[in-house]
């Protein structure tokens, strides 16, 4: 236990002059706090994109309803379900990782989380191909008659691409944990990096939870 804690303890927390266990607890609390500050920052990042969408939609409500009808609801809903499931597995991994008993479960959950993330990107890729095939890219040959409908698709491409990049970073972080944990049995248990990565994953989930009703659901009724 002590050797593992020494492995996990980083500067400057190792210089606090505290017993290893409480130094590690403070390091973990610091890491969790740090990632939450970053998440607060990211809230403003994605919030600005959603504000852009809101203002454009307020200015062109009909064109936005017409444009949103063109998105593929099946892919969108499937992807939402995939991410919600991955979020659950991430939460289980994060909780199971406290204490040394459940290393196999944690490893399995991490791998499944990253796998579902990859599945999301794969579905998104198929969807992108279909969108391009239907010329739903702003510019010449755009199928909808109202010019502001192109604004909707500008936001659609921008927001989903930025979300996709965030998700890809998340997949990298989670896969890294899975690989390192698979190689070294002492790496995962109680490691603050697990919670940090999985909190980031949760945030990327939440972003999609809001993008889904904004991009896929308007204009369906009537």
């Amino acid at each position: 236990m002590s050797a593992a804690e020494k492995l996990l303890l980083r500067e400057p927390w190792d210089g606090l002059g505290l017993p290893e266990e409480s130094a590690l607890a403070r390091q973990r609390a610091g890491a969790t706090f740090g990632i939450w500050i970053f998440i607060a920052s990211e809230v403003l990042f994605f919030g600005a994109i959603i504000l852009l969408y809101t203002v454009m939609r307020l200015e062109h409500p009909d064109a936005f309803a017409a444009a949103a009808r063109e998105t593929n609801l099946v892919y969108g809903t499937l992807n939402t379900a995939l991410l919600l499931t991955s979020g659950m597995l991430a939460a289980v991994a994060s909780r199971m990782n406290e204490g040394a008993g459940a290393r196999r479960t944690v490893l399995w959950c991490l791998a499944a989380t990253a796998g579902l993330g990859l599945a999301f990107l794969a579905v998104k890729g198929i969807e992108y191909r279909e969108d391009i095939g239907r010329h739903l890219v702003p510019g010449p040959g755009f199928p909808l008659p109202q010019p502001p409908a192109q604004l909707f698709f500008a936001v659609y491409w921008f927001a989903t691409a930025i979300h996709g990049i965030h998700l890809a970073i998340g997949i990298g972080l989670v896969a890294r944990l899975a690989i390192l944990g698979w190689r070294d049995p002492a790496f995962l248990p109680d490691n603050p990096q697990v919670e940090v990565s999985l909190l980031y994953w949760g945030f990327v989930d939440i972003v999609w939870i809001f993008l889904y009703p904004l991009l896929y659901l308007p204009g369906r009724a009537g």
């Binding site: 990211e42 403003l44 990042f45 919030g47 994109i49 702003p138 010019p147 500008a154 921008f158």
Partner: peptide, 21 residues
Amino acid sequence: TPVLAVTLLLVVAERAFDLPI
């Protein structure tokens, strides 16, 4: 800062990909 980051990214998107923003 994140709001600036998005704003500048939108400028790049409008210039590079001709997205109407």
